[in-house]
Write a protein that binds this DNA or RNA. Structure first.
Lengths: 311, 311
DNA sequence: CGTAAGTTTGACCGGTGTCAACGGTCGTGG
DNA sequence: CCACGACCGTTGACACCGGTCAAACTTACG
């Protein structure tokens, strides 16, 4: 039964892949889930020596064109279409690229920023996943959101210049760090970028509203179905298989995201499995009956067709 | 009896009313909750004739300086410090002012935009209150947010250029309508405005996160306490009394905002009243014990001090 | 004055939080 | 190699909060 879900994620390649057409650039790209362009562009860890020598951020000091630096740049990033660069010209791309810092891999559990920090930069994961959490006065952790590659992290500080959450890596991850002041400056100069920035912010607002929608659903089963539905959509959006994937977060994180007890989440998963809607093995999830999943997420009032496989 | 609450919602003064002491409306600005500047700047309805003659939006066609138009302008609006104009120079202010349209009063129940509409403008209420609601597939209404004066409405469309919600007036209201494309253009030119726009958006994001926080709280009593706490803060923020106010929304709206049944909201209110924390009369609320309200909102785990007044 | 809408209150029971125990996986170290 | 413990996920039992249905009451408004 276990073998049904063999999809494991290679940690390094993380969540990202190329969307649509894998571009061959370098002979051998075939075997890995990550397209070669990704490997080249987004994985500083692949060539640690070079990275070390060029300093903390990914840019080289020399005016000489560094092939590796170029390859790591926005122009070649597989996330380009999902990220800030989308739709801005070469000029703007260069300007943007010049301020982007590419940080060495973030360890699982490490924080990009913490509650109370001043807003210095916004972040985009190239691969890996993050959660943003806010700790309430009584010490309870509340998951505000999950962030997959291409989704901006750090916008919570936009209102008051102070971060309202911690941003914690759920897996090892590589991120681009974009100093916010400089981003705002460039956005004013490059009209397309301003528009793009607003759009990315807007998508983030949209996700928050989806989250609200989820929490307002009264039944636990609805929230869980909606959560899986949303994750599937987001995986598809970044070019990952949307029918079987590995959730980067624990049951507890999901519970704190959905406002439920973790036992309830666990029970919800098994229930969906019993009903033949999904297959679950720990964090690995396969969606078997998408239509039914959508129905549960959106039209829960209808009595479910009772053809349980084993009851 | 009508006269007792006449400052009330007279459309103009918006949300606010007082609970305790009846105020005379006429003559004495001293007594009214609305600051005089507000009355001057924000009340097109006060002089309907002039308003009609100057056309649909508040601007006059003639180059001659129209005192009324000026008074209605951003420069004199009492909301200035809360709204987009804050912190931008005279130049920018004029540019911004030139694109702002001031719409005639919106009737209660009327919509600024509907789900599926293209993003054309963002709105700011000068007075009155709005809710944004999203209708789910099964026809259920879900309250995404409430909007008091100075809070931008319409940002939900930022992500996809399509509105995700309806924006419905809870009371008669006056709004400024800001064509979004032009706003973005000007924002690129006026650096202060771009910053300001991002900040206003950020505050909106912050409110969404507060909302999330509310929904994630498990106990109904916590959500209700948090809701009242937040409303009180927001009233204070716009210069209204924060210890007694009139809620612009129904119990049902609150319930749909908090993800509860309306009966539960009602029971929660009476419970708070029984405990001496607030006084409730329909939509009129007075906060009697703020410390206790805050405690309930933030530290619900502690057993409440049981010195009930009656019970 | 009559109708509709909004609010409150009561009774009932189902869903879900809580507590508890068990099992599986992974990493560490003997 | 296995032993061990930490962490994570699953499952069961049970009590209680809150959703649902129902009815009375007040307020708003024509």
């Amino acid at each position: 039964m276990r073998s049904a879900i063999s999809c494991t994620l290679v940690p390094v390649c993380g969540l990202v892949t190329d969307i649509g057409r894998p571009r061959l650039v370098d002979g051998s790209s075939a075997g890995c889930a990550c397209p070669s362009s990704q490997r080249r562009a987004c994985d500083p860890a692949a060539d640690p020596a070079t990275d070390e020598s060029s300093g903390y951020n990914g840019r080289v000091a020399t005016p000489v064109v560094d092939l590796n630096a170029l390859r790591r740049g926005c122009a070649h990033c597989s996330l380009q279409q999902l990220c800030l660069p989308a739709g801005i010209g070469v000029e703007g791309l260069q300007q943007l690229d010049s301020i982007v810092r590419r940080r060495r891999p973030i360890a699982r559990g490490e924080s990009l920023f913490r509650m109370g920090d001043r807003l210095e930069a916004v972040y985009v994961a190239r691969d890996g996943a993050f959660k943003t959490v806010s700790i309430s006065e009584n010490g309870e952790e509340r998951v505000v959101g999950f962030h997959l590659p291409g989704e901006l992290i750090g916008l919570d500080a936009l209102g008051a210049d102070i971060h309202r959450c911690d941003a914690v890596a759920l897996t090892v991850a590589n991120v681009c760090e974009v100093p916010f002041d400089q981003l705002a400056d460039i956005a004013a100069q490059v009209p397309g970028l301003q528009h793009r920035l607003l759009r990315v912010i807007g998508r983030s607002v949209g996700r928050d509203q989806d989250h609200l929608d989820m929490l307002a659903r009264r039944q636990a089963s609805e929230r869980i179905a909606l959560f899986l539905h949303g994750m599937s959509e987001r995986f598809r959006h970044i070019g990952q298989p949307d029918s079987q994937f590995r959730l980067p977060m624990s049951r507890e994180d999901i519970a704190r995201f959905l406002g439920l007890a973790l036992e309830t989440v666990s029970r919800g998963f098994t229930r969906l499995q019993d009903d033949g809607v999904i297959a679950v093995d720990g964090r690995r999830v396969a969606i078997l009956d998408r239509a039914e999943l959508d129905r549960l997420a959106h039209h829960p009032e209808l009595p479910e067709p009772r053809n349980r496989l084993h009851g």
